[in-house]
Write a protein that binds this DNA or RNA. Structure first.
Lengths: 246, 246
DNA sequence: CGGCTCCCTGTGATTCTTCTGAGAATCCGC
DNA sequence: GCGGATTCTCAGAAGAATCACAGGGAGCCG
């Protein structure tokens, strides 16, 4: 759906030309900040709230198109916030943030309505991808928007998690998939290693930038194997993905 | 995990293009909420009522195409609600919600008129399927909507609960059937284990994602046995059902 | 009651991923 | 061509996710 080069980053949802509105509800300031930056970078209009009460207030006048909601909030349960939120805007899609170990009990049933969730610690790429998914589904209920990214003869389907080049299926692991998704979302654009690390790996990843090189090499082996290369190194800067010249 | 949905999500019943209208009557707020979410997600127009009185009032101006009715209500018996409901709209189909241990024969009498029921705790997949059934049967006038799901050479009949692959009948248990139905309603889409759990198992199921793996393996044994596999594992993401390539 | 089916839990075994560390290879300016 | 910096690749350890299987318990039916 989005073949966004950076220039076309802003995605318009509303007829009046305003951008997608996202409400981030999280009491951990640094985390909310991080999300805020990343989403603004996507061209979206972001507002934050640190607790349930202000979240509801903000939701009222901001009228977000989608909400990111931490299920652990200081003043009230994420569930009750959801309930009241839905009371006002029944159809707003919600992306839940939850700690890794609480998945089983608390989330049960939440995602059933077509909402989605990510566990902390998450990667920004993951959050953005899921938000897009929610919006895609909410926006046009009827004709399903496709969830396929294409660069040259390289095709990535976000729904089925399938990747192919020139018709040949390619098996990728979860991390490889996320890395490639990030690259394909930013074709012809140099992405630095720190940038990639920030986006594709979880925010609390402590490791070295070495992994990026490693995974790039994995991807090359699978995607560029024998063919005209699409992944290029810009020494001292980063990596670019672009259609093979042939 | 991206979330579910399938191709023809929005179902239009009315000539003017409006969606199917569902009235949910249940006094347990969280439950009503859950149903509401799931049904809205199906693309239907949902309204809720917490007691018999307001149910009747809402039914009057909302004119639902189908009603979900808890037989245990605070103010009046589900039966009297039904009676009065039918007094106004004699033909509206009703899906009863009933506790597991409630008197079976009474329900049997209720559903004699072509209505249906599910026992609590239910799975959302079950409720949605039965609602579809009711609507399908109510719509008898026009070309009868089919109740058959097909993916590749795999065929599942929601009415007769029959499943076959390549012409060969396959016997599935109730749970296996529901799991397969969910998969078949979302072909080529990765479904995460929590997602499947939310949808296929009852809302109060406390167990581990372990069961999903178990039932997937059961299904594989029955559906993919010897043949080209249709159920695929996306390690770290979930499972996909897609037509065998062959 | 006894046999049957079905659902689920728990436990290992097994497979697949991820990441670290180190050395080899490459590039670039001089 | 040299030296330092950067990037690539390898091998393997640690850890996760998945699978397979055995068995307990609930419900059903004659």
């Amino acid at each position: 759906m989005t073949s966004l080069s950076h220039s076309a980053r802003t995605e318009l949802l509303h007829d009046d030309g305003s951008a997608v509105r996202v409400l981030v509800v999280d009491d951990e300031a640094p985390l909310a900040e991080l999300l805020c930056l990343a989403l603004r970078y996507e061209g979206w209009d972001v507002r934050t709230a640190a607790d349930g009460t202000s979240a509801l207030r903000t939701a009222r006048d901001f009228r977000p198109d989608v909400v990111i909601l931490d299920v652990m909030l200081p003043d009230m349960d994420g569930l009750s916030v959801l309930g009241r939120l839905r009371h006002e805007r029944a159809d707003v899609p919600v992306l839940f943030l939850t700690a890794k170990d609480s998945v089983e009990d608390r989330i049960a049933g939440l995602t059933a309505g077509g909402d989605d969730y990510v566990t902390k610690p998450f990667s920004l790429e993951e959050v953005v991808a899921r938000l897009r998914g929610l919006l895609r589904r909410a926006r046009t209920v009827a004709p399903r928007a496709e969830s396929v990214l294409t660069v040259g003869d390289l095709v990535l389907d976000e729904d089925s998690h399938e990747v192919s080049r020139g018709g040949t299926e390619i098996h990728l692991t979860a991390t490889e998939f996320e890395l490639l998704r990030f690259l394909m979302r930013n074709p012809r654009r140099v992405l630095s290693k720190p940038q990639i690390l920030d986006r594709v790996w979880s925010y609390d990843f402590g490791g070295q930038a070495n992994v990026v090189e490693l995974y790039i090499s994995y991807l090359r082996r699978k995607i560029d194997a024998g063919r005209e290369p699409m992944i290029h190194t810009r020494r001292g800067v980063g990596y670019v993905l672009k259609p093979a010249v042939v």
